[in-house]
Design a protein around this nucleic acid. Structure first.
Lengths: 262, 262
DNA sequence: TACACTCGTCTCTTGTAAGAGACAAAATCA
DNA sequence: TGATTTTGTCTCTTACAAGAGACGAGTGTA
């Protein structure tokens, strides 16, 4: 590997400088569309992923031809295509946990009236894989596919169970430890929380992501000790001790049901 | 463009001969996994898409890192990953027709007890986008994402409404005209069927894909005259005239509901 | 114990795709 | 109306990714 003068570029960092592999550009395009959540013009897309226009046109054409993207009716904006939906359904079909998990989450939110979610680690980040809104007049909603820093959530504390301090440290950035309201979490406290959650078999956080919600979470195991996902309920922060206790019981029961060999 | 001796390669045909663009290889990989519907070893994958092993390893690694593919627990087989599921859900969210269509299909099959499907054209092929199995003891099931030659289906006749003969001819290959039982459809008959279906506003086919089912389909319009999708019921071939008529009525009603500005 | 596999990783070469940029047409603005 | 930006397409160059192939470690089988 000739280094030349291109030092200071720490191996894993992508400097969007020079020539980029087409595939990587495509991955960035998909990720970008996932964050915008709406169709976008190709020119803007190029700007957004910070790629040359000509390249972007070529790539988008390939993707549209393949059906991964679709041109909107107005003809010059693009968004995800049917093929991605089909592949996604294939994933669901091949994935028992997800299939059953979606079901359980839907049931749970219907039974309790609270917002319920299935969460997993997705490339090192906390991800809401499926969510079902509650029936409250002002419901606390959260979008599928949303990615949130691990330390902000109850589920995050469960998903990292079993990892040692170094591994945990590697998975959370400094920014992740800063809560939405500006408070800064100490890494040590977070590590302690994780250990506590692991022995308790559930986790509750209050007013972390926002001031008026409480988050209840229970682990789903794919093997003894290995947390594959969590089920979680988002409830108003003033929910009574008694009701909270009942909900946690229910939640743990359902999560256990999802665990393999359960 | 130096031709050399590499003639006989008609422009749009891909000769999997020489160096292939990485992105294309990836698209082939995804398509291959979609057809196998199961996790597969990387070596076999390379054979399956007929790509060099070293290249395949590289690409798969990228895709796994990006979360589009996932390694199975056994560590050396791959299948679709969570990211594709998330992108797929984004597609659903951004696509009113699909979202509402899934709902209607589920309702319809619950109400009638018959297998119900939402179908669309996907890069020139008939595709079952969402299916809900009926409640019969021996239910006629069909998998989401399945692609079937247009002439085999009632929906196919509706989806091609409005196209002229040349366009239709371009969309069906010779093989497509051969039914599963070996009978060969005449293109002219197919074209006539399409015209008939268009004026009727629905289509019924009997014993085409197999000997014991009848297929009822109604068009979903995205604009006057433009068929965007079809809803369809798969029923036993011996369903009475009366019940068939009722079902068609119901089907047309629901399909109309889905049509924009309807 | 040899033989014939497949697996995952690495190195080196060269064909080619990413990108810069020019262009006409369309759209937007003043 | 002309001025300015955006859009979609095209051409040409060269940096670099696709691919051939070698390698050592694992796995089976005779």
């Amino acid at each position: 590997m000739q280094d030349g003068n291109a030092t200071a570029i720490s191996a894993d960092e992508k400097i969007s400088g020079s020539r980029e592999k087409g595939l990587n550009r495509v991955l960035e395009i998909l990720e970008f569309l996932h964050t915008t959540q709406r169709a976008i013009g190709i020119g803007d897309l190029a700007k957004g992923v910070n790629a040359p226009r000509s390249t972007t046109y070529t790539l988008v054409r390939s993707l549209v031809d393949a059906g991964l993207l679709e041109l909107e009716s107005d003809g010059n904006r693009v968004y995800f295509g049917k093929k991605l939906y089909l592949y996604g359904m294939d994933y669901v079909r091949g994935n028992d946990l997800l299939r059953r998990g979606r079901q359980e989450v839907d049931n749970l939110s219907r039974e309790t009236g609270e917002t319920s979610e299935l969460c997993m680690l997705q490339s090192g980040r906390y991800t809401i894989v499926h969510a079902s809104p509650g029936t409250r007049p002002f419901r606390i909603s959260s979008a599928t596919g949303l990615q949130i820093p691990l330390p902000w959530t109850a589920s995050g504390r469960l998903l990292l169970a079993g990892l040692d301090r170094a591994e945990i440290e590697a998975m959370v950035s400094d920014d992740d430890l800063v809560l939405p309201d500006g408070r800064k979490l100490r890494l040590d406290d977070f590590v302690t929380d994780i250990a506590k959650a692991q022995v308790a078999g559930y986790c509750v956080t209050s007013g972390l992501v926002d001031a008026y919600t409480k988050c209840l979470a229970a682990p789903v195991f794919s093997a003894p000790g290995k947390v594959e996902a969590t089920m979680c309920l988002v409830v108003p922060i003033d929910t009574s001790e008694e009701r909270t206790g009942k909900l946690i019981g229910l939640l743990r029961d359902r999560a256990a049901r999802l665990s393999t060999a359960g």
